[in-house]
Design a protein around this nucleic acid. Structure first.
Lengths: 175, 175
DNA sequence: ATCAGCATGTAAAATGTTACATGATTCA
DNA sequence: TGAATCATGTAACATTTTACATGCTGAT
């Protein structure tokens, strides 16, 4: 009951209009991929719970048992409350850093290879995000994509920082 | 069975010598705070499981039912394997960014306040880490604290990036 | 007609959090 | 002797992942 971010991610996605569990899954995979992830199983269960609690409602039913959920007034209120009144929890788990913390235990060769790979992955992510940024810059700006651009900028800066740090770390370990 | 990073964090901490569940809890809270977190409950349960599986063993018993666990050869092998052969999982959940993604939904005043607070928190964290860095620089360098310094440098760079991004984001939202 | 993609659901297991419960030892 | 700290353990609950299970629809 502490975090419940999944339901807030769902509520946020539903502010742009009704969607099925399947639709939401695609949106989690695409636009929310590095911001909040969810599995198919989790989504359907959560949507059912949220409907019980009146945060969403079935707005329409379609072919193949498709159920489109819409956000309710209660749901909207819950989302806004969570956004501004609930402090985000700081990240406290980073498997990459955990490995680096114990990196003195492995062969220097392997340590260097590890950091090189992390640098490469970060560089690759930075390049991918740069391409996305180019596309997004061509869109006409509105309130909604302004938030998206701010998140994208975070991705660009974070991946660059990560890449540069890993390259620097390699020099530290090998010396 | 996919992640199991908790046990690897425990194994890593035990490479510096035997420790009790209580000792390990303190080390999770202090040195590993932003790298991997664990609760008291989780630790005792995991240590018992790891002893069952032969990754650690009870090396000594002390007052108050204190049990000191030591890493075994199997445990050491499991740690080294995980460090270099298992890919770190990318971070896929960030509650702060999730809020920013939907920030266009709240009053501009509240959006600005949110970003300002994030910038302040990041700045504060950066200052705290800078102080730690000063202390660490006075220690004589060895292999073990070299890894620690690399992690610390990550913290310094990440908090600076986060702080600067939040300040920039504020200008984007308010314009 | 068949295959990719749409669409939902459940069960089991793993992982993580919170709360409860107990008691020993050390130091002021 | 009382408080802080040391020290472990369990139960209940919440969250997340993985796997299984089923069936429809649209396009080629």
């Amino acid at each position: 009951m502490t975090g419940m971010s999944l339901r807030h991610a769902v509520l946020g996605l539903l502010t742009t209009g009704p969607a099925s569990g399947y639709d939401l899954l695609k949106r989690f995979e695409v636009s929310l991929a590095y911001v909040w992830s969810a599995t198919q199983s989790q989504l359907y269960g959560e949507l059912a719970k949220m409907a019980d609690e009146g945060l969403v409602e079935v707005a329409a039913e379609g072919p193949r048992g498709r159920k489109e959920y819409a956000i309710t007034a209660d749901g909207r209120a819950a989302l806004l409350h969570w956004m501004t009144e609930v402090e985000p929890e700081p990240l406290r788990r980073n498997g990459m850093l955990l490995r680096v913390f114990f990196l003195h235990l492995v062969d220097p060769d392997k340590a260097v290879a590890f950091l090189r790979r992390q640098a490469d992955l970060a560089a690759q992510q930075h390049d991918e995000l740069s391409k996305v940024a180019e596309l997004v810059e061509q869109e006409e700006p509105d309130q909604e994509n302004k938030s998206g651009r701010v998140v994208l900028e975070w991705g660009l800066r974070a991946s660059a920082t990560y890449r540069d740090w890993a390259r620097w770390a390699e020099t530290q370990i090998s010396s």
